[in-house]
Nucleic acid binder design. Structure first.
Lengths: 156, 156
DNA sequence: GTTGAAACATCAACGGC
DNA sequence: GCCGTTGATGTTTCAAC
């Protein structure tokens, strides 16, 4: 796919501040405004930049409780459309299919223990048995940019 | 803190598209451009909107392997500054302090198994013994907006 | 990648509800 | 207090080089 160092710098800058103007971005990577503009548009078209989002403080929004829920289907032989069936539950922020004992790992945001209890009941009824729920106490950091450094793609 | 429905609509729109212009945002929530502008600035000042970020396709960037690493310190009596000591490892996207058997849950992005092996060694040497590593096979969805609906803050 | 110019968005000051 | 209008400044966008 060939993403150059300049593109990595652009991606890093837009990860840190997704609303940075093309003018500032240009100054940061040492290019003209329209040159970065073209590169950003190309990164968007190629899907390297999949979009932009606001970072939300969910505590301030009344959803102070974050948890991870590991699940596995009740019937392992049944067609596994759990992600789709769970997608209606708005409390679920992300859904990963994982290797290991569990099938899926969900990250959820709720208003408190009672809402978590309700959610767990819904998850059970929709997509199998909940296996393990891990409560998040605090989040030292989140959404950092894990970008490529010197060691690059060697090792695959 | 008192976040109104109008603010929730703004937050939802900016979660879906963090670079949406105030003009479009205004049309979407039925306000004038400067009215939404003022509300967004207030949401930023109050910390409800903590910033903006680009959504990156890490596979396209050469980091196709995502994993969760659950850790606990070697010496539970020692001062626990693991998040800070781990913050130098750029592969770590997020670090949550959790309840349960483990102390921290890390989400990491690497280029492949060899890079994961290297990272696990670094995590061990820096912040304790790695207890369980869960490989992500695929991600049906991620970064959705878990916003408040009718049930609100009841239940706390 | 660059320049330049038109269309558009941002932001602060002011007035009205 | 919150919303709307205005106008100056800055930004985005696109064609031509």
């Amino acid at each position: 796919m060939n993403v150059e160092d300049l593109d990595l710098a652009i991606v890093a800058a837009l990860t840190a501040d997704g609303r940075m103007s093309f003018t500032d971005l240009a100054a940061r990577v040492g290019l003209s405004t329209s040159a970065v503009h073209q590169r950003v548009k190309r990164l968007e078209e190629r899907g390297v930049i999949a979009g932009y989002t606001a970072k939300i403080n969910y505590e301030a929004l009344g959803l102070p409780l974050t948890a991870f829920i590991a699940i596995r289907p009740i019937d392992p032989a049944a067609p596994d459309d759990a992600p789709q069936r769970l997608s209606g539950l708005s409390e679920i922020e992300s859904c990963h299919s994982v290797a290991g004992e569990d099938y899926y790992l969900l990250k959820v945001r709720v208003s408190g223990p009672a809402a978590l209890e309700d959610l767990l009941a819904k998850v059970r009824s929709v997509a199998g048995v909940t296996h393990r729920t891990t409560i998040v106490l605090s989040t030292p950091y989140e959404g950092r940019a894990p970008l490529l450094r010197g060691d690059r793609v060697a090792g695959w």
